[in-house]
């Protein structure tokens, strides 16, 4: 097999290229971001009222919840979410979520940047419409 060397060299190059993202970033892991809660969100937290779902569920699954909300609002015309405690929320990213979490840069963006995800929610939805 006269091609043996070429094949091995080729495989080596392939391996180096495919693992490129790992070794180029080795040892450069950023520190986990520290999220800052806006005053309204902090108040809800302190009073024990919390978010629409328990903290750890929100942390892990807020994107699925937003997906369900948008489906319900846009396609089924059902806009009110009734939480487990019976509290009602208007299912709106801008007018409900971002009204309480009025600090997108310190809340949403920090974690999204850390996780290197760029959701395009804000291409359309207006950040914190009612202002501080």
């Amino acid at each position: 097999m006269s091609d043996k060397k070429i094949i091995i060299a080729g495989l080596a190059i392939f391996f180096v290229l495919i693992t490129f993202p790992f070794w180029i970033n080795m040892g450069k892991a950023a520190n986990a971001p520290e999220l800052i809660l806006a005053p309204t969100a902090q108040a809800a937290m302190d009073s024990g009222e919390g978010c629409v779902l328990p903290l750890d569920e929100m942390r892990a699954n807020h994107m699925q919840i937003l997906d369900l909300w948008r489906h319900s609002v846009v396609r089924n015309a059902e806009r009110i979410y009734v939480g487990a405690d019976g509290k009602e929320y208007n299912m709106s990213l801008s007018n409900t979520c971002l009204d309480c979490h009025s600090n997108k840069a310190d809340f949403c963006d920090r974690c999204h940047n850390y996780a290197s995800v760029t959701p395009y929610c804000w291409d359309c939805h207006i950040d914190n419409p009612k202002g501080e």
Binding site: I80, Y81, G83, A84
Partner: peptide, 10 residues
Amino acid sequence: DAAQPYVKKG
């Protein structure tokens, strides 16, 4: 079951 969240019209 009141403990479960649900959605409705306003």
